[in-house]
Every structure is written in C-alpha cells, then in structure tokens.
C-alpha cells in the first residue's frame, strides 16, 4: 500500500491534547462563574475565591492525570 502521508512522534502528546479539552472548558466555566459572582457581590470575594481555587483544583486534576498517563503508558 502506498503511503500518502506519514506522522512520527509520540501518541502520548495526542492523548494529552485530548485530555486537556474537557478540563480546559471546565476551568473556564469555574473561573467565569466565580468572576460573575464576584462582580455581583464584591463583599463575598474571599469565600468565592477560595471555592474557585477548590473547583479549579478538582477540574484540573483530570488534565494532569492525562499528562502523567502519557509517561506511564508508553
């Protein structure tokens, strides 16, 4: 069979790209909503910021597992 195009490299990079889509959108939503709430109620900034970082931490874990998985499953 004749090859028309060839790609070389590590499939882990593609995997990480896929793994970053969901958490990217998720972190965007978390931060966007938190900023919206802060704009509505500036006096609640402290508690909102804390909870925003918590939400980011939980969402971001998925992307980071995607990064690590590229190294583990080679």
């Amino acid at each position: 069979m004749e090859l028309f195009a060839e790609v070389t490299g590590n499939l882990g990079a593609v995997g990480y790209g896929l793994a970053a889509i969901g958490p990217g959108i998720g972190v965007g939503i978390v931060v966007g909503k938190a900023l919206e709430s802060i704009a509505r109620q500036p006096e609640a900034t402290g508690i909102l910021r804390t909870n925003m970082f918590l939400g980011i931490a939980f969402t971001e874990a998925l992307a980071l597992i995607g990064l690590v998985a590229g190294f583990i499953f080679t």
């Binding site: 931490a57 971001e60 874990a61 980071l64 597992i65 990064l67 690590v68």
Partner: peptide, 9 residues
C-alpha cells in the same frame, strides 16, 4: 499527582 505533574510540566 497534581503537585508532581505541575512541577514536572
């Protein structure tokens, strides 16, 4: 994993 992946990246 969160800590190690952030620092590694």
């Amino acid at each position: 994993i969160r800590l190690v992946a952030n620092m590694l990246a």
